[in-house]
Structures are given as structure tokens and as C-alpha cells.
């Protein structure tokens, strides 16, 4: 649908990738781990490897959860745009097909210290 307007109405997106000084946004969340109130917003260079994302900001951010020490990163199940997906830890975000504003989810079956059974 279009916006009701008296003349042609075209919006200019505010958060296109070229406005981020060479970086991009990535959203990361951990299913059933709602100690973290919302998915994390990260701003990273597209050349960052997936391993750097995981071992850097992500490991630091999930640390307050009692399950964090028990995460086996080789067994985490990943989703991208809500679809099952397998990252290559050694390759960059760009090479892994992680675009600007993509949402990545991680699942760790069996870890649910603070989560009620659904």
C-alpha cells in the first residue's frame, strides 16, 4: 500500500549501510535466554570473521547468563533470518552471507537455567 498524500511520496531510508562508515549492523540473539531483554545490536566491519564475532563481543555479552560457561560453540545451532543456517567460523561476515541488519539466532538445546518450560 502507499501513503495517502497530495503528491508523490518517497521515503529515504535513514540506516543504509553506506551511513555506517564502512561497517554494518548485525543483530544476535540467544533463543530462550531472555535475561538479555532484546537481541544485541553489533556494529562490525564486514571483514570480521565469524570466529571474531563469537569470541569477541558475543562471548562477552552473554557472560552474565548462568549457562554461558556451558556453551559448546561447536554444537550451537544457528539461524539466519529465522531459517536454519551454518556459519563458517573462519570466514568473514561478508563471505558467510551476513548482510547489513541481518538477524542471527543461536540455539543451545539443553541449556535453560533461567527459562521456564514453554
Amino acid at each position: 500500500m502507499t501513503v495517502a498524500a497530495i503528491k508523490e511520496y518517497v521515503g529515504v531510508p535513514r540506516d543504509r549501510v553506506e551511513n555506517f562508515n564502512g561497517k554494518q549492523l548485525v543483530y544476535v540473539s540467544w533463543d530462550h535466554h531472555l535475561l538479555f531483554a532484546a537481541p544485541f545490536l553489533l556494529c562490525l566491519a564486514p571483514q570480521t570473521s565469524f570466529r571474531e564475532l563469537v569470541e569477541g563481543p558475543l562471548t562477552a555479552l552473554v557472560q552474565p547468563d548462568p549457562d554461558s560457561a556451558a556453551i559448546d560453540w561447536t554444537k550451537v545451532e544457528w539461524l539466519k533470518s529465522n531459517q536454519p543456517w551454518m556459519p563458517d567460523f573462519e570466514r568473514s561476515l561478508a563471505d558467510n552471507g551476513i548482510g547489513h541488519k541481518d538477524q542471527i539466532r543461536m540455539r543451545t538445546p539443553g541449556l535453560a537455567s533461567l527459562s521456564a518450560a514453554a
Binding site: 543483530y27 540473539s29 538479555f36 532484546a38 545490536l41 555479552l61 552474565p64
Partner: peptide, 10 residues
């Protein structure tokens, strides 16, 4: 170690 979430939010 009070909980601060520096991840900012979506």
C-alpha cells in the same frame, strides 16, 4: 558484578 547489558538493543 551488577548486570549491565552493553549490547544495546535491536
Amino acid at each position: 558484578t551488577p548486570f549491565k547489558n552493553f549490547g544495546l538493543a535491536k
